[in-house]
Design a protein around this nucleic acid. Structure first.
Lengths: 137, 137
DNA sequence: GCCTCACATTGCATTTTGCAAGCGACTGCA
DNA sequence: TGCAGTCGCTTGCAAAATGCAATGTGAGGC
């Protein structure tokens, strides 16, 4: 598991960000919450990129420890938990949007998904609000 | 070394971005180029975060392979190389800016560096232009 | 010719990742 | 009441990435 003291401490805001979400999986979990409105462990597990269970749980724990997501019991199902974005997590929406914009511009592969990129070009403000308080799609 | 076929191919622009710069070091090299105007191997090596030589060279090669940086000989010193950002690399400026904004807002540690964060608040457009064609600070 | 600098490689121990299996608490259903 | 299925999570282990120190190479400088 990623340990808490694996954080750098140079004071650079970029390094600080990377310490929170600078790996191959963390930002995909945040994407799943923002873009796809996912909120449960099993929903994250079902994402296209096929994250392993041990990686997923370690990232969720780290995100919770970093105050980016909040974990609470599902009132309707006592064996489930609901993960949601804190303010700090919602504030990652602009970061995600700019990554989407960059990926949309520079990913020339077949099968690149344009839907959200088009939405971003047409109504950035609206999309950002949507990412901050998402609903399942 | 990170192999080229370690790329995911789900078509998601976020996953595409993470395949290019989703690790603990790549974006720091890009930060060094944009924010600090660094352009040589030895300048990157001297960064605060103390990247190892093997990691640095592997990231530079990957960035070059991905078309994000360009490598050419230094006309003034034939044992040196100059690394510079391509258009694709310069287009990462908004991503970096939003990470800086987020880090600036949420990093409450002692010693967090505010200078660039303040600059961002005062003149985002100017800063973005500066990051796209940086000069050493 | 010898020294230094800049870029880069190598070897090896440690850490992280990927993958498969399994576990305990809980639920829905007969 | 029993029991199969779901949910969140843990464990074991092989493979890959990382951290680290030492070494190599090729171009200048003197």
């Amino acid at each position: 598991m990623k340990t808490e003291n694996s954080k750098r401490s140079t004071g650079c805001p970029v390094a600080f960000g990377l310490d929170c979400f600078g790996d191959r999986w963390t930002l995909l979990v945040i994407r799943d919450m923002m873009v796809h409105g996912k909120r449960t462990y099993s929903a994250f597990l079902a994402s296209e990129e096929q994250v392993a269970t041990n990686i997923l749980i370690s990232r969720l724990k780290q995100l919770e420890a970093d105050g980016i997501v909040n974990k609470e019991r599902d009132p309707n199902n006592r064996r489930s938990y609901i993960y949601s974005l804190t303010q700090k997590g919602q504030d990652l929406a602009p970061v995600l949007l700019e990554i989407i914009r960059w990926g949309g511009k520079h990913d020339s592969r077949e099968g690149a998904k344009r839907k959200i990129v088009d939405q971003l070009e047409q109504d950035q403000e609206g999309l950002e609000q949507q990412l901050r308080s998402p609903s399942p799609d």
